[in-house]
Amino acid sequence: HNLTITQGKLFFHYNPKLCLSEIHKMEEVSGTKGRQERNDIALKTNGDQASCENELLKFSYIRTSFDKILLRWEPYWPPDFRDLLGFMLFYKEAPYQNVTEFDGQDACGSNSWTVVDIDPPLRSNDPKSQNHPGWLMRGLKPWTQYAIFVKTLVTFSDERRTYGAKSDIIYVQTDATNPSVPLDPISVSNSSSQIILKWKPPSDPNGNITHYLVFWERQAEDSELFELDYCLKGLKLPSRTWSPPFESEDSQKHNQSEYEDSAGECCSCPKTDSQILKELEESSFRKTFEDYLHNVVFVPRKTSSGTGAEDPRPSRKRRSLGDVGNVTVAVPTVAAFPNTSSTSVPTSPEEHRPFEKVVNKESLVISGLRHFTGYRIELQACNQDTPEERCSVAAYVSARTMPEAKADDIVGPVTHEIFENNVVHLMWQEPKEPNGLIVLYEVSYRRYGDEELHLCVSRKHFALERGCRLRGLSPGNYSVRIRATSLAGNGSWTEPTYFYVTDYLDVPSNIA
């Protein structure tokens, strides 16, 4: 807008934040220059609390790290170098490059900038070799853009010569660093050979998330399962459950009422301010606690030095998902009996873990797994792929695949051998790939016309006998059925096997 004052003059007093240069501009645009008398524009009460600059400061050096910015700028000295009290560095987070010096300023003089007072450097006698002032900004957020400017702080001049310097606002972004852990990993099994893994992005990506790394490792069953005799009275049979499938998407929606109208769909109840505040506090606490764990609990591995020492970490090797089922080394339970199943799973520490690289999504279907087997899954978020990966501390989750139908069934015939004193040795093959492992066998036998009897055969007993022995049988026709019990439950009964026990007292003698 054009402003013209045809008559009258300007009068400025007691404006401590208004620089004289701005008042002189007002004289020019209003056409009143030359009308004012000496005392109409006070030299001592206008701009006496402001830094009124008329020179431009330029930054000469900028260096960044993930949490620091090192700045240096060209030296500046007023005509009387004693008038320079120091520099004021202003900075704040700036997602967009549209910041002005006066953003967030209120009537009390406060604003949204963080201000650092910096002492002037030592003055050199040689004007050509003056030290460049600077400042190291610490405690910054990774991968965050900051708006920065600097200006001088000078003393009051009796001659009211307006001098000083100020830089333009520059924008500097800190470097990326390792992201925080992925949030809320959930693993479920939808079949006997697959596990579905879902997660949420890290709360602090500290860069642009480029991919996720998912490692999985087959877990050995508890050692007590191999040692305890679950045929003993009072000892509860062990059981394991597989990871249940995901709930429906509708039930997972946030901010939804727990109660549904019987007449149909209901609208979600909005969260109160107290609920939102509580969630923010919980989120802040979780982030602080995660940072504490990362800094205190997890110790970084030592990389190899120039002395030739090897990095103890196993090298990563990509495998196809079809090879995942046989990740671990199978060892027989008892070496003397080769027909026992290889369900003991000690994992070799030198073995390469299978892994998958996930790009542009937060889910993965891990296939080719062994049925009813526990897996430990390790999830890392990465925001750099080359020249070397920059990934987060791992988040861990466990899951067990679903049982395989008929995996616990005894394959092959049940054979028998009759000894003296009416002892019958029953023999059968253990299931080759049971659900988890076989903890015991149930032997059901009966003599024709009598009630059915049951015998429990422990895992250890089966390994020693290759089956079991029935003792003290009365003469007669017998039928026997056997079924295995694994961590997933009972298998199917075998087809009945028949044998006849004679009275050993009636056996004919070869003595003449």
Rank of each mutant, 00 (worst) to 15 (best):
N206A: 14
G476R: 00
T502W: 05
P338I: 11
D229I: 13
S305H: 03
Q384W: 05
A488C: 01
R481E: 10
F462L: 05
E495Q: 04
N477S: 05
T502M: 09
L379V: 08
L235W: 14
V501Q: 03
V397D: 01
G325M: 08
K406Q: 11
P354L: 10
Y478T: 01
S492G: 14
T333M: 13
T347N: 08
E221Q: 09
S268T: 14
G325H: 13
C468L: 05
G489C: 03
K406G: 06
T272S: 13
W428Y: 01
Y292A: 05
E249L: 05
S509R: 09
H211Y: 15
E362M: 06
K302W: 11
K287Y: 12
S367C: 13
R400F: 10
E465Y: 13
C468I: 11
P244W: 07
Y448K: 04
S458V: 08
R286M: 15
V423T: 14
H371F: 11
P434Q: 07
C468R: 02
V423W: 11
Q275G: 13
C269Y: 13
R376F: 09
W216N: 05
V327M: 08
N255S: 07
P300R: 14
V296N: 14
L470T: 02
L277C: 04
Y212S: 08
F372E: 03
V324R: 15
P238C: 03
R400G: 05
S392W: 04
F337N: 09
K432C: 09
L225N: 02
H416R: 10
E249Q: 13
S341G: 08
P354E: 07
N383T: 05
G325P: 12
E442T: 03
E356G: 12
Q219C: 04
G234Y: 06
P244A: 08
V359R: 12
L232W: 11
L487A: 12
R313F: 14
I410G: 09
P496G: 15
W428V: 00
G322V: 09
R286F: 09
S243F: 13
G234N: 10
F499E: 00
M402G: 02
H454L: 07
T497C: 15
V393M: 11
F246C: 08
Q219N: 07
E247N: 13
E417A: 15
G264H: 12
F298V: 05
Y500K: 12
R240G: 10
P338F: 11
Y375D: 00
V334G: 11
P238E: 06
A220V: 05
T401P: 09
R240T: 09
E290A: 11
P332E: 14
K361I: 06
I209R: 13
G374T: 10
I482K: 01
T485Y: 10
S492N: 02
N421T: 06
Y498N: 15
A381F: 01
F462R: 14
K236P: 13
E310Y: 15
G322W: 13
H454I: 14
G308M: 15
E417M: 08
P300E: 12
C382P: 14
C468H: 14
S262D: 13
G234E: 14
N295H: 05
K406S: 08
F226N: 09
F462H: 11
A488L: 06
E282L: 14
E227L: 13
N208R: 12
R370L: 07
L379C: 05
L455V: 10
Y478G: 00
P403M: 04
V414M: 05
V423Y: 10
I482H: 01
N360E: 10
L379M: 06
P332T: 06
E310P: 05
P354W: 08
T307L: 07
H371C: 07
L455R: 05
S363A: 14
S363L: 10
G308Y: 06
V480A: 10
V329H: 03
T401L: 05
S284I: 00
V414K: 01
R376M: 08
E310G: 14
T347M: 14
I377F: 07
V345C: 05
S392T: 02
V359Y: 08
M427L: 12
I209A: 08
F499Q: 01
D273F: 15
N490L: 14
R319A: 14
P387I: 11
V439G: 09
I438Q: 02
V299T: 06
R471I: 12
E260M: 06
T485I: 12
Q275Y: 06
E258L: 05
P300V: 10
R318T: 09
G412M: 11
N255P: 12
E265H: 13
D450T: 10
E356L: 06
K236V: 07
S492P: 11
L505N: 11
S243T: 09
G308T: 11
L379E: 00
Y478R: 00
T288E: 10
L369Q: 13
N422P: 02
M402C: 15
E433S: 15
S320I: 12
T210H: 15
I276N: 15
D311K: 12
K361P: 10
D506S: 10
T343K: 12
K317C: 11
F289V: 10
C266L: 07
D229R: 14
R313I: 09
L364G: 13
V358Q: 14
V507R: 15
M427G: 08
T241N: 13
H294M: 13
R459G: 09
N208H: 04
Q256T: 06
P238G: 06
N339I: 08
S398N: 08
N360V: 10
G325V: 10
G306V: 09
H211C: 02
V327N: 07
E350T: 13
C468D: 00
V424S: 01
S243W: 06
D291S: 06
E388G: 15
R301N: 13
D222F: 07
E217N: 13
E465I: 09
L237A: 14
P314R: 06
A335V: 10
V297P: 06
H461F: 13
P244I: 12
T485W: 08
